[in-house]
C-alpha cells in the first residue's frame, strides 16, 4: 500500500505497526449501509444513548471514499449485491467490513433465492455479528473487537509471515467433508 509495507522486519516495523494500528482504529469512520431492521439499531448506536462518538465514530459517511468501515446492516438481496460491492470498491484502503445481524452474516432465516447467503460472498468480512437484530451493545462490542483486530494488524514482512502461517493451518485443517453437521 505504502511505505509501511516496505519496511524491514524488526523494531521499526513493530513500532510502525502499533502506531498505524492506533491511528487507524482511532479514526474509524463507518460508511452507512443500512438495508433493513438492523439499520435501526445501527442508527441508535450512533445516537445519544449509545453514542458511538465516544469512539470517534458518530459520523456515518454517506460517501464511501471518506469511510473505513462498512457496516452491512440487514439482509442483502441479490439485486443489492453489486451495489454493495461497488460501494466497497469505492472505499479507500485500508477498509473493513462488519456484517451486522444474521442476515448479512449468513442469510439468517432467509434461506431463499432472493437473499445473498452471507455478505462474505460479495466482500471480505472482518467481523460477524449475530443477532436479529443485534442490540446496540452488541454492535459496539463488535466494533470494539474490530478495533482490537485493527490495532494488531500486521504489516509488511510480518503480514506475509502471518498469511503463510494461516495458509499452512488451513491446509492442515480437517476437511469440511469430515466435519459434522453444520460445519460441513
Amino acid at each position: 500500500m505504502g511505505i509501511e509495507e516496505k519496511l524491514p522486519s524488526g523494531v521499526l516495523l513493530t513500532t510502525v505497526e502499533g502506531v498505524a494500528g492506533y491511528f487507524r482504529k482511532a479514526s474509524f469512520w463507518p460508511a452507512t449501509f443500512g438495508l433493513a431492521c438492523c439499520a435501526i439499531e445501527m442508527m441508535t448506536s450512533g445516537g445519544p444513548r449509545y453514542d458511538l462518538a465516544r469512539y470517534g465514530m458518530e459520523v456515518f459517511r454517506a460517501s464511501p471514499r471518506q469511510a473505513d468501515l462498512m457496516i452491512v446492516a440487514g439482509r442483502v438481496s441479490q439485486k443489492m449485491a453489486p451495489v454493495l460491492r461497488q460501494i466497497y470498491d469505492q472505499m479507500a484502503e485500508p477498509k473493513w467490513v462488519l456484517a451486522m445481524g444474521v442476515c448479512a452474516s449468513s442469510g439468517g432465516m432467509f434461506n431463499n433465492y432472493a437473499i445473498v447467503q452471507g455478505v462474505d460472498h460479495v466482500v471480505p468480512v472482518d467481523m460477524y455479528l449475530p443477532g436479529c437484530p443485534p442490540r446496540p451493545e452488541m454492535l459496539i462490542d463488535a466494533i470494539l473487537k474490530l478495533h482490537d483486530q485493527v490495532q494488531h494488524t500486521k504489516l509488511g514482512v510480518n503480514r506475509q509471515r502471518e498469511v503463510l502461517e494461516q495458509e499452512t493451518q488451513q491446509l492442515n485443517a480437517l476437511p469440511t467433508s469430515e466435519m459434522k453437521g453444520l460445519l460441513r
Binding site: 452474516s105 462474505d120 460477524y128 451493545e137 452488541m138 460445519l183
Partner: peptide, 13 residues
C-alpha cells in the same frame, strides 16, 4: 449473554 461477535464463520458455530 450477548457479546457474540467473532471474526470467522466457524467460530460462530
Amino acid at each position: 449473554e450477548y457479546e457474540l461477535a467473532d471474526a470467522t464463520r466457524e467460530d460462530l458455530i
